[in-house]
Amino acid sequence: MSGLPAVGASGQAAGRLVPGRGERLRTVAALVWPTLRATRISPLLAAGVVGAAIVTPPAVTGSILPPDEHITLLRLVMACVGLGVTFTLDDPAKPTAETLPVAAWLGALLRAVLAAVVGGACWAAALLVTRSGPETTSLPYPDLTREAATVAVVAFLASAVGWRRSPRGIGSPLAAPMLLLGMAVVALLPAPVALLVGTGDGWDAAHDRWTFLLAGTLLVTAGVLTARR
C-alpha cells in the first residue's frame, strides 16, 4: 500500500457536487452494464427453461387438451418464471453498497427491467409453444399474460422483501418459498375471491381482481424499495 495522492486530482474526484438531472442520467447509464453483470439471471433462465418444458409435451405430441388444462399448465409456467424472478435482487455486495449515494431502488429498477426482459422472453416462448399445439388459438392469452405479470411482480416483491431482510443481501432463500406459499394461498381462495379460475362466468371478475392485485403489488413493491434502508 502506498499513501494517497493529493485530493482533487480531477474536478470530480470526490463526487462532491450535487448532481443535476443530466448527471443522474449518466449515473443510470453507467450503472446498466455492471448491474446486468451483477444480477443473478441464471436461475431465471433455468426456471424459464423448466417452464417451457412444462408446456412442450402437449404441443409436441399434438394432444388436444381442454382449455382449462392449458391454462393450468401456463399458470405453472408463471410459477416457474416467478421463482426465477425471486433471485433478481440477490446482491452479495449489499453490505458494501448499502450506504452509497445512488438510491437502492435505482439498481433494483434496473434489475427489474432485466428480469422483465428475460422473464418476458420465457413467457413469450411458453405462449408460442402452447400456440403451436392443436386447438389453442382461442385461449385467453392477454388475460393470462396479465396473470403472469402479476405473479412476476409478486415474485419481485418477495425478492425485495428477502433482500431487505437479509444482511448479506441474499433474499432468494426467503423469497422463493414465500412465492410458492403465496400461490398455494391463491389456489385455496374461496369462490367469491378466487383468482385461479377456469374459463367461464367468473373469468372476467377474477381478472378484475388480478388487475387490482397487480396495481396493489406494484405500489407495495415501490414502497418496499424506497423505504428507509
Binding site: A47, V50, F87, S172, A176
Partner: peptide, 13 residues
C-alpha cells in the same frame, strides 16, 4: 436454493 421450489412444481405437474 432454486431447485427445491422447482422440484415442488414439477412434482405437482
Amino acid at each position: 436454493v432454486l431447485i427445491a421450489p422447482l422440484v415442488v412444481l414439477l412434482v405437482l405437474v
